[in-house]
Design a protein around this nucleic acid. Structure first.
Lengths: 298, 298
DNA sequence: TGTTTTCGTTCCACTAAGCGGAACTACATT
DNA sequence: AATGTAGTTCCGCTTAGTGGAACGAAAACA
């Protein structure tokens, strides 16, 4: 994965960076693919005999479908993924045959199909912590008139693995699978407060690369949030990731420290009183997390 | 996909079945992979220049993780997917690098990671019907003391794209992404009642292949359920898919008939009164479906 | 109606990506 | 030590996958 700490996971991974005979010749298959230009995956696996590019590309096509924006045609996919049209055409064909994409005749475009959800189900059912936490989360959601979510890290975002919202909350319903910003949300910052120094430093580097000029400013706010967690157990964030949204966040660390997640409680500003959030919901969330943390872990 | 009706979807798909020079030679890469022996995908794409096998295999590895059963090692994956060890090793390596699998050092096994959930999120956010239906579903779930789900078809199962359960229901919580049997559940049968003749016949053939000797018997019950739907709008099923579970199912057909889903309402027998389910919940579910069906469709 | 643009599929020559049998390592178990 | 088991790596082979370019169809424009 991305963390430096577990770089030695795999039994033997000698630094076999052959980098093709000499500088990549301008022959057909571009030696340094551009698929993941946001990440460093492309460079890291430039010529790794173990890395299956066709698979990575196919998944990149699936990733290209962003939440709100509806179906995509092959061309749009090609430009988003920076893959050649012909390649995308074959990949969408394959994914459609497998049932992961639906082809919409009328538009000549593709949309992700429900079978992808089935792929994700084992993730949920393996997370015992959800079973334990869910009811409490729902209670807190009702109590706060907002929503409560449990999130885990992926790359530089947090992904909701469970979400509850009070009936009062109509707008802004984020579901399981939602991806939210790490540096600008309460969950994200709480997560950063929960992990070890080494991992945090590493992620900070990546965040710096991503946020560019905004980083110094952002970083100070992240550090402040971490201090808040150290101080009173939770951090408070408002108007950062989205305007008029406020939330508190708490890290959730397994006893052995190997698994870290985070929870938030919050919602749109108009029905989340900041005072209540900080004085009531924050501590409640801290309590909730500390009582279920022992159950976290594989 | 699988239905015969939309076989001519793709602009031009001439019957290019070259089937390798002569009968597949026993050379290295097995010309007829066994990956999908449950499906006919393997044979259909035996030598299809457009089909990207590496992608299909990678996804097959992800599919190998079944809900309850926890992490899997490379060897288990190899035997489940019928792929050679070396291949699986490379695929898991790739999937891990991409963040779709987590490697658990302690066990030397892999488990599906939350990023898969993020992959599925666009599916949810594109389904407008969910937004509309969800609250009503929750109400009915509460009213019935059971659970209410909306499901869509994938291959020969139904996949939950939304699920609500009453607080009273503690056991048997099926979530979004759950895969349930098509022939033996109320949702599945309701779906079969909702689709056209041609598609149904095709699926029946596949079901016959899957269920073997049990099919004749099963089929008569499926046909009965379809008759029930024609008669009173919903079908009732108990003790079939799982012992002591009863439910009613209703098809959900878009105005133009192109999109078909289904809903169920039910739960464990001990807190679902059969009479209430049939006389009260069934009709309510029918009403719910008919009122939201106009919103269904792309 | 003809022309141009746009989007997608297909063709095809090329070659390195991916494959898989076999060898190898590491670690339990006996 | 010997055997078994799970996994990774090696390496020659070849075909699966690639991508530029040609092609087709349909929409947009004139």
């Amino acid at each position: 994965m991305v963390t430096p700490t577990d770089k030695t996971d795999k039994p033997k991974s000698p630094p076999r960076k052959k980098k093709t005979p000499d500088a990549a010749p301008p022959t057909s298959r571009s030696a340094v693919p551009l698929v993941f230009d946001n990440d460093d995956i492309s460079t890291r696996h430039a010529s790794d005999r173990k890395f299956v590019w066709a698979l990575a590309r196919g998944l990149e096509v699936l990733r290209a479908f962003k939440p709100g924006q509806g179906p995509l045609g092959n061309n749009e996919l090609a430009s988003q993924t920076k893959l050649p049209k012909a390649t995308v055409s074959r990949l969408t064909y394959t994914l459609t045959e497998l049932g992961y994409l639906n082809f919409i005749k009328r538009l000549g475009k593709y949309e992700p199909a429900p079978s992808i959800l089935a792929l994700g189900y084992p993730v949920l059912s393996n997370l015992r912590i959800r079973r334990i936490a869910h009811d409490y989360m729902q209670q807190l959601a009702n109590h706060s008139n907002g929503s409560v979510a449990l999130a885990s890290r992926d790359r530089l975002s947090m992904i909701y693995v469970d979400a509850c919202s009070s009936a009062a909350l109509t707008t802004m319903r984020l579901d399981i699978g939602s991806r939210v910003d790490m540096a600008r949300t309460a969950v994200g910052r709480a997560f950063l407060a929960g992990i070890g120094e080494a991992e945090r430093d590493f992620i900070f580097h990546r965040l710096e690369a991503r946020h560019g000029a905004e980083w110094p400013d952002l970083k100070s706010r992240v550090l402040d949030a971490i201090a808040q967690v150290a101080d009173r157990g939770f951090c408070y964030v408002e108007n950062e990731w989205r305007r008029d949204v406020r939330a508190v966040g708490v890290p959730l660390v397994s006893p052995d420290g190997s698994t870290v997640m985070a929870m938030n409680c919050g919602g749109p500003a108009f029905n989340m009183d900041a005072k209540k959030l900080i004085e009531d919901c924050g501590p409640r969330l801290v309590h909730l997390c500390s009582s279920i943390a022992p159950m976290l872990g594989r």
